[in-house]
Simulated assay, not measured.
Amino acid sequence: MATTLLRKTVLTAAGIAATTGGIAAPAIAAHATPAHADKAVLADRKNGDRELDVRYEAQPNFYYCGPAAARNAISVLGKNIDVDTMAKDMGTTENGTNSINDITPVLNKETGKTYRSVEIKTPKADHKQTDTLRTDIVRTIDDGRAVVANIAGTTTDTDGNPHAFEGGHYISIVGYQNNGHTVTIADSANPNTASYHITIDHLADWIATRGYSTS
Results as ranks from 00 to 15, higher is better:
P34I: 02
P34G: 05
P34D: 07
P34C: 08
P34H: 03
P34N: 06
A35E: 02
A35R: 03
A35T: 08
A35S: 10
A35M: 02
H36Q: 12
H36A: 12
A37W: 02
K39L: 09
A40T: 11
A40K: 01
A40N: 11
V41F: 04
V41I: 13
V41S: 06
L42T: 06
L42Y: 02
A43S: 14
A43H: 07
D44R: 10
D44W: 05
R45K: 12
R45T: 14
R45I: 04
R45C: 01
K46P: 02
K46A: 13
K46Q: 12
K46S: 13
N47Y: 11
N47Q: 13
N47G: 02
G48S: 06
D49M: 00
D49G: 03
D49Q: 11
D49F: 05
R50K: 13
R50P: 00
R50D: 05
R50M: 06
E51S: 11
E51P: 00
L52A: 03
D53S: 15
V54M: 08
V54C: 08
V54P: 06
R55L: 14
R55Q: 15
R55K: 15
R55T: 12
Y56L: 09
Y56S: 07
Y56T: 10
Y56E: 08
E57Q: 13
A58P: 01
Q59R: 01
Q59A: 08
Q59K: 08
P60K: 05
P60W: 02
N61I: 04
N61F: 01
N61K: 07
N61Y: 00
F62D: 09
F62N: 08
Y63C: 14
Y63A: 15
Y64F: 14
Y64W: 13
Y64C: 09
Y64M: 14
C65A: 13
C65T: 10
C65Q: 07
C65Y: 04
G66K: 13
G66E: 10
G66L: 11
G66Q: 07
G66W: 07
P67N: 08
P67R: 08
P67G: 11
A68H: 07
A69I: 05
A69T: 15
A70P: 06
A70L: 11
A70R: 04
A70N: 03
A70Q: 01
R71C: 10
R71F: 13
R71V: 08
R71W: 06
R71H: 15
N72Q: 08
A73F: 03
I74M: 14
S75E: 09
S75P: 14
S75M: 11
V76G: 05
V76Y: 00
G78Q: 05
G78V: 12
G78T: 09
K79V: 07
K79P: 02
K79H: 11
I81K: 14
I81A: 14
D82S: 12
V83M: 12
V83F: 05
D84Q: 13
D84K: 14
D84A: 15
